[in-house]
């Protein structure tokens, strides 16, 4: 599988990631090489094989539904890059005109 520079840009957008223009071409090349290598998985007969999530991690692990004390806003917001009172503050979600 070969991926183009535009693919890299589109995928980076999906991941909410900005990639330097100078790196886009390098990533396209390197990731194409990696995906080409990964294509060897197509040689494996997977008929009848289970997903690992079904084979091993298929039991829900529950814990008792008992309320415990939380740290509260002081703990939750201790590392907030920006806050207003007990809330995280973020930039506008819609670009201002």
């Amino acid at each position: 599988m070969k991926i183009s520079k535009k693919d890299v840009e589109d995928i980076a957008h999906l991941a909410r990631l900005k990639v330097d223009e100078s790196l886009v071409g390098k990533y396209a090349e390197q990731i194409s090489d990696i995906l080409k290598y990964i294509d060897k998985l197509k040689d494996v007969d997977i008929s009848g094989a289970k997903l690992v999530s079904d084979a091993c991690f298929n039991t829900n692990i529950l814990r008792p539904d008992v309320p415990v004390k939380s740290g509260g806003p002081a703990v939750t917001l201790a590392n907030a890059p920006d806050r207003r009172g007990d809330f995280f503050q973020v930039p506008n979600t819609i670009k201002p005109n």
């Binding site: 990631l17 900005k18 590392n79 890059p81 973020v90 930039p91 979600t93 819609i94």
Partner: peptide, 23 residues
Amino acid sequence: GVRYGHRSKESDELIDMYKNTKH
């Protein structure tokens, strides 16, 4: 960039803030 860690100062809009922060 919302709850902890670095946040880019180069953005005035949320999606750009995510992208620049990770960049």
